[in-house]
Amino acid sequence: MARLLLCGAVALLEGACLIPQDDTVLPDLPPKKNSPLRVLAPTAKPAQRRTTVQVGTPGPTCLRPEFSMTVLDEDTGDPIRSQWYVDPTATYEQTPTNPVFTGAVIFGGTSTTRQVTAPNAMLTFLASLVDGKEHLVEAWVTDSEFTPDAPPTSVFRDQRVLPDGTEVPDTAYTDFNVWVVKVEPCP
């Protein structure tokens, strides 16, 4: 009796296997979403957020100023762009005393970490701030493009095309680092 039941169950299961299956091919995977980029704070130079930089002719007692930081972005194909603000206004509007400097585009090849360096223009501008006061330097990075004449949080968003052909906006990311800087002349 038990053997009969077992045979019946097997026959049923085999029958189930013979039921025609849906041969629709699985749809394509949607394109990968943009990964966020991140400033690796421990890599920032100057290492200290509150710092003094010297400007003038470098020598043993006068170091060349260097502002840089490493950015981590898992999307190796994304170029990294940077904008550097000195004493930014609340709206990040550019004025003669609150300038904005655009850093070089960093491609980085196949590396997930990219070093972003302050443009020469910002260092030249800092040289005119030898006034014994502290100044704010903000460095913003994005894996997209900054919107001209807008705060650095405003960046272009690429379109992602889904398998069904619809376009949806991708996410673009920004991150930043800040220094409080006093500028002194080289002795």
């Binding site: 003038g56 002719t57 470098p58 020598g59 020469n120 030249t124 040289a127």
Partner: peptide, 26 residues
């Protein structure tokens, strides 16, 4: 291949007319 050009600061002569290195280019 990423090709990055950085001004070679060690080669700058003392009293160089440029107080800062030139921008890196990549």
């Amino acid at each position: 291949v990423g090709v990055r050009a950085l001004e070679h600061v060690a080669s700058a002569e003392p009293g160089s007319e440029r107080p800062f290195p030139l921008d890196p280019v990549e």
